[in-house]
Design a protein around this nucleic acid. Structure first.
Lengths: 342, 342
DNA sequence: GAATCAATTCAAACCGCTTTGGATAACCTT
DNA sequence: AAGGTTATCCAAAGCGGTTTGAATTGATTC
């Protein structure tokens, strides 16, 4: 059942039917109701492909997922971010397009997405320092929103980010207040922008107390259980081991916990741990009482916000670029306690 | 730059240019090369929206992600499955459409996807027993592939699945061979088809050794760290606690490990654990030596296979329905050992 | 009563591509 | 040399909607 058939059945022109369905004012209310009823009765759904061609809009948003050919890692926060963004798209009748491309082809992929007219805008994930995609997107001229920020970017852009610096600063201060002075930082890869900001927060907190940072107490690696475990073991084997850890993710925190327990220590008593908790749906940090003390910020909410921003940019091109800094909560769990005396 | 402009620039008709670019035989080779060169030079990309309308094909595949309104969980294997499938789509110039919808609207969502012509086929995720989506998709008449199977389905359908029953049967046998006779099953929610099959495998192995199953040694819950921890604690507190666990996921396995360690026991020595490992990129089970002994099957590969199947179905409608059973490897890690004497 | 206007409706152009059904010219056949 | 191929190219008709520019009608104004 297409528009023409429906129009014929109603004894109307396609023009009027189209207008009736799309809420244009120049159509008689009685007619509109007749059309609406017929459309419902015949289960008429306008063909999206035709609408897209006719209106010149894609009614779709792109997410490009670069798959590194070396370390084939898919960001675990991705699923939840998508879930948040996707709800917003669905509600607004937009499609969400996922492009999984080898990272070497990422740039080409954005250009193609734009030139072929597949999307009206994109969300950029996991920005790096001075991320080349930002000038690229400016060049392409497609609306975009960055999940995160990119230190060093020369031009303005819309973004949603967690205040990573402040979150880690507060977490470090909390540990310092508990008497910990040797705090291990188990960070993500520091070409990622958020990782740099977290380190800055950590360093700021130390500096405020006049504590000199120690390179051996800072690691930067992929945020896996394994790498957390490795970092934990290494630091705990130091002559003067840390009494607390600040971990960039729950997963690496679990690795650290394993290292702690392997050494016969107890997390929360002998060694304190704070993680960053993205509040992933399949990775809840405890039920009533959190397992880990954590800086928490829902990545799903971030997805929702980013999607809304993007739809706004698409609807009002040339408007100003929204920027939204989300503060992380510091939630107290069972993994932190006063520094042991000694 | 569109087709008409390009044609004008070349002094050819749109017809010929279109044919030249699409490899039709009725065009002079010299002309074709001239066209190709011009297309490249002017960076011409055919407008996808127009192609879709003209050909009547969506060149897109849909994945519907139902978001349960109660327990808002996003399946953690989802990201990796998508990554595998996405590569295949990209290579074949198909788009991947993600629809995130409240689970109550899932059916409507499939119907809309089809009626509006947004996709040429879909992949069904997380099938349940007697899953209503299978007859639904038959009714709609859109090609589809199921990731998993649905016990009780009345009609044939294409699927890719892991041999969950055999995997858990082998794992249980392995534990039995090590002398464990009390094995706790920490299963996923048993309205999910795979969870039922895993339990069947576990029960089959016990039955073959003449061991009667004990309801208290079997739990079924969401596969989170918390629920694994809870199940582990409960079972370890039994008068005759299990000496081994069979866990449906790495995440719940980590919860079980935590429970084991909280009771002052050592995993792999006092209590053995086998998990199912989906080989997720962000959740590697160790590097050289696996942490957990595991039944392993790459969900990313499954995504790749499912996507290939679906594209095959779309290309050859009415062909027969491929079905692919993947065997899981049983890989030995550090979490299993002989049952303690006593 | 003619002119003006608002309310409705429609025919036709258009979006940018594919595809059908010729057209044209060069090349063979017999 | 007429008829038949073959190779090459093109005009025009879709695909299924939206949108522009007019037409029609009845009501209102002067």
């Amino acid at each position: 059942m297409n528009l023409k058939e429906l129009a014929t059945k109603l004894g109307l022109s396609p023009t009027t039917v189209s207008r009736a369905l799309n809420g244009y004012p120049e159509v008689n209310e009685a007619t509109r109701e007749r059309v609406m009823a017929a459309a419902k009765r015949h289960n008429y759904r306008p063909n999206t492909r035709a609408i897209r061609l006719a209106t010149g809009r894609a009614m779709a948003v792109g997410h490009v997922i670069p798959v590194a050919t070396r370390h084939e890692i898919v960001n675990p926060i991705f699923a939840d971010f998508i879930a948040g963004a996707g709800e917003t798209y669905s509600r607004n009748d937009y499609d969400m397009l996922l492009s999984v491309v080898p990272d070497a082809e990422e740039e080409a992929s954005y250009r193609a997405l734009s030139a072929k007219g597949n999307v009206d805008g994109v969300i950029l994930h996991s920005p790096r320092l001075d991320d080349p995609r930002i000038p690229l997107m400016h060049d392409i001229g497609l609306p975009f929103v960055v999940h995160g920020r990119s230190t060093g970017a020369q031009m303005p852009y819309a973004w949603v980010d967690v205040n990573n610096r402040r979150a880690f600063q507060r977490a470090a201060e909390f540990l310092l207040d508990l008497g910990h002075s040797r705090i291990g930082l188990v960070n993500g890869l520091e070409f990622m922008d958020f990782a740099v900001r977290r380190r800055t927060g950590y360093l700021d907190a130390l500096a405020a107390r006049g504590i000199a940072p120690e390179p051996d107490l800072m690691t930067s690696d992929e945020m896996t259980e394994i790498s957390g475990h490795r970092a934990g073991l290494r630091m705990l084997a130091m002559p003067r081991p840390p009494t607390a850890f600040l971990c960039s993710s729950m997963i690496s925190g679990m690795g650290v916990r394993r290292a702690i327990e392997e050494r016969g220590l107890v997390m929360g008593r002998d060694v304190s741990v704070i993680i960053h908790d993205d509040d992933l749906s399949y990775m809840k940090n405890g039920e009533d009482v959190p397992i880990f003390t954590a800086t928490r910020s829902s990545v799903r909410d971030a997805g929702r916000i980013a999607a809304e921003m993007l739809l706004g940019l698409i609807a009002h091109p040339g408007g100003d670029l929204p920027q939204r800094l989300l503060e992380a909560d510091l939630i107290i769990g069972q993994s932190t306690g006063r520094a042991p005396q000694g």
